Simulated assay, not measured.
Amino acid sequence: MKLGKGSCNGTFGELVQGTIGKRPFLITLPIPSLRSEAIFIPDPTVSEITGVDSKVKAMKAGKLLFQQFGLKGGGLLDIRSNIPVGKGMASSSADIVAAMKAIAHSYSLPLTKEMISTIASKIEPTDGVMYDEVVAYDYIHGELIESFGVLPPFIFVGIDLGGTVDTIEFNQFEKAYNRYDQNHFLKAYDWVKEGFRKRNLSFICKAATISARVNQKILPKPSFSEFEKLAHEFQGGIVVAHSGTLVGILIDRNIPNSTEVVLHLSRQISVIVRDPNIKPFYYFSNEIMNGKNISLII
């Protein structure tokens, strides 16, 4: 055994979330600059995994991983994260994944994404962040449905509308989706597949907007129609945290005068929100770097 390290990205809500048939699913929007970093210091003389109280879910995941591989002992789990909690950015899922990776690194365990999913789903609905790429994922049962790959080049301007949402509590009640909503989810799923197949972000933007509209009757976002009009102005889409407090605008990275566009979006979002204490934030992707060169500007 050795000092173990693990990390995991967060997300900005979801591109799509709903049900197909009776199966719950989401399509991830990973943001690599949002990260949970874990360090595990093994100690064979103790019988528990310890850490700060705020990371109890990650410690529970570590305990289940120990049981999975029949490990004895324990250790200290230290997790540092820049992912806001209760916003819909996969903060606790990222902690759980990073913790398991750190323990696996410490003990050289043959940990798979499927194992991570199984353990994570025993603790809470999980966001599919054990996969670096964009995936369709059953967040209740912890199962991969389909992998799509890396998003086409994009710019994203988002905002946190305030407050928090308890994901576990939120997912305890059944969502009031009707057959029209189900048809919308099928359409959105197909748009995502087409967007990745053709490397065309506009299809993915359409899918995200469809899903965000349906979510308005589940967890409505204030001033949604104004955000949607602003997105339409630049042929973009609306992305929301379906169980969180976030709303954002997704647009093509190759749009002319992209810097000016981002500044315009920022100003207009500030006008919509009408709260000087709430500031937009930005994510940029660069396909040349295979989707990994993401910068966060606050």
Rank of each mutant, 00 (worst) to 15 (best):
S147N: 11
S108E: 15
I159R: 10
L111Q: 08
G128S: 02
M100V: 02
G88T: 10
G162W: 09
P152M: 05
E124R: 00
K122N: 11
M89L: 12
T118L: 12
M130I: 03
S92D: 02
I155C: 14
L151N: 04
E143C: 05
D127R: 01
A94Y: 03
H105E: 15
L151P: 04
V134T: 13
K113S: 12
H141V: 06
S92M: 00
K101H: 13
P153D: 14
V157I: 15
T112Y: 09
S93A: 15
V129L: 03
A120F: 04
E143N: 13
P84H: 10
E143L: 11
Y107K: 12
V135H: 10
K113P: 03
I103Y: 07
T118C: 07
V150A: 09
I123H: 08
I119E: 00
P125I: 10
V134M: 06
F148N: 02
V97N: 00
F154W: 06
T126K: 05
Y137A: 07
D132Q: 13
I96Y: 00
G128C: 06
P153E: 15
I140E: 10
T126F: 05
K87N: 02
G88W: 08
L161P: 03
V165Y: 07
S108P: 01
K122F: 01
G158H: 10
E143A: 12
S108I: 11
H105F: 12
T164W: 07
I116H: 03
D127T: 02
I119F: 00
M130T: 05
M115L: 13
S121M: 07
P125W: 09
Y107S: 06
L144P: 10
F148L: 11
H141A: 14
G149Q: 11
P110W: 10
A102F: 00
A104Q: 05
S92T: 09
L109I: 13
P153C: 08
Y139L: 12
S93M: 02
A90E: 02
A104F: 06
I155D: 14
S147G: 14
E114I: 12
P125H: 10
F154V: 01
V150K: 14
V165T: 13
M130R: 01
V135Y: 07
V85D: 08
F154M: 12
I96N: 00
F148Y: 15
V165S: 04
V97A: 01
V85W: 04
D160N: 15
V165H: 04
F154Y: 15
G149M: 11
H105M: 09
I123M: 08
M100K: 05
I119Y: 00
F156I: 04
G162Q: 06
A120M: 07
I116E: 09
L144N: 10
I83F: 05
S121P: 05
I116M: 12
D127G: 02
S93T: 13
P84D: 12
F156T: 05
A98G: 02
I103E: 08
I123A: 08
V129H: 01
